[in-house]
Design a protein around this nucleic acid. Structure first.
Lengths: 208, 208
DNA sequence: TGTACATCAGTGAACGCGCGTTCACTGATGTAC
DNA sequence: TGTACATCAGTGAACGCGCGTTCACTGATGTAC
């Protein structure tokens, strides 16, 4: 067992090393945190020489981007599923909860996603336009729940506000300071729901 | 001019190297970002040998902690000032705005602050208890504006929610996706205010 | 006031390390004839 | 169906780098007598 568990008796040509590298990166990430994500470590984890990744990614940054992009996709999926599971006016809170739980369950990946975004000073393109993106789904859900789609600015503001709220909560939820409040409210999920409900997630027209 | 601009003709004993190191760290931070913050770079920037910092900090982590702690202090001060400047029911929004502006103006420091917090899984102790901490000030302000201090859980929830909202907005505000919305609303500050106002910053009793 | 000496706060060289990337290479695969 | 050859996707050794930390040292300061 000298080899990484991902290695085994591999043929010389890997088959889909790109895929394997992204998977290896995610494994490392959740095991040892974002600082463990070096190109060499990823290659090692995938059972391959340190030069091999260069046949699939221009440089380290491109590998990180691929990992981040897959993260955004997984977030989209998690939120889709949560929305489908929830009923009517609960859908919005369900989306928020799914967001926060994704961040809690994939903390290192979540970090890499936003690190990549900050580098580019932009969230991924697909979020702005893609019908299936988590971000657009929030807006769509607001309209479904009765928000006026003609009040564009208001709708956009509400979407941004909801996104900020979820992100802020995601980053705070792990701090020890809030364990007392969690206990008082009856557990973490209750706490998350309570905070989300405290924030105005709906467009203001809907609230008035 | 071979020396760092902080060096000049220094006596052998520095006087207050600890202070100088923290200052150097902050200078590096805002100039080149968090990844530039190595112990060696800080020593270099302070015009001192790489071993010198070890007379003032146990290791690199302790230096970073000192930088972060000073960051929290500066945040406290900025929010105090903003609260003093604002009138009545505007105080809460003013606090939020000051928070977000602090993050915008000291992005790398802000990052280091939360990195340190995440390491410990806790915000700094003083935030929980210190009367002058920014966090406590938010709660106090809510009471001053009419929130019922007896509804402890509700008050605490409202404080957490406001803190999350501000943090979320602080991290989102820089993304290119929102430049259109900023323009529509008449500038960045208008955008920040609009988003903050969209979130329920008051305790629910106050809203009902 | 002067001197011996302990302590403090620096120096600078060295350590081992893991990193990103490049290079010449070679084994495996696919295609043309 | 077999063979020559181009291309693809790996290897492994090497590069230079900056890092955190340690070490024996030394210059400056303060204190006791």
């Amino acid at each position: 067992m000298r080899e990484s568990h991902a290695a085994e008796a591999r043929p010389y040509h890997h088959g889909d090393l790109r895929r394997a590298l992204v998977d290896a990166a995610r494994r490392l990430l959740e095991a040892d945190g974002p600082s463990a994500l070096s190109l060499r470590a990823v290659a090692r984890e995938a059972g391959v020489s340190p030069a091999a990744p260069y046949h699939h990614f221009k440089d380290k940054g491109e590998l990180l981007d691929a990992v981040a992009q897959e993260g955004w996709q997984k977030l989209d999926e998690a939120m889709s599923a949560a929305k489908a599971r929830a009923e009517g006016h609960q859908k919005l809170t369900a989306l928020g909860l799914a967001y926060v739980c994704f961040a809690r369950d994939n903390p290192a990946l979540y970090r890499v996603m936003y690190d990549a975004a900050r580098d580019k000073e932009a969230l991924p393109d697909q979020m702005e336009n893609g019908e299936d993106s988590a971000y657009c789904k929030v807006r769509t859900t607001m309209v479904e729940l009765g928000a006026d789609p003609v009040a564009e600015v208001d709708l956009e503001l509400a979407t941004v506000a909801a996104w900020c709220a979820a992100h802020g909560l995601a980053e705070m939820a792990g701090f020890k300071q809030f364990t007392h409040l969690k206990d008082t409210l009856g557990g973490e999920e209750a706490f998350l729901r309570a905070v989300l409900n405290h924030m105005g997630l709906f467009p203001s027209a809907h609230r008035a």
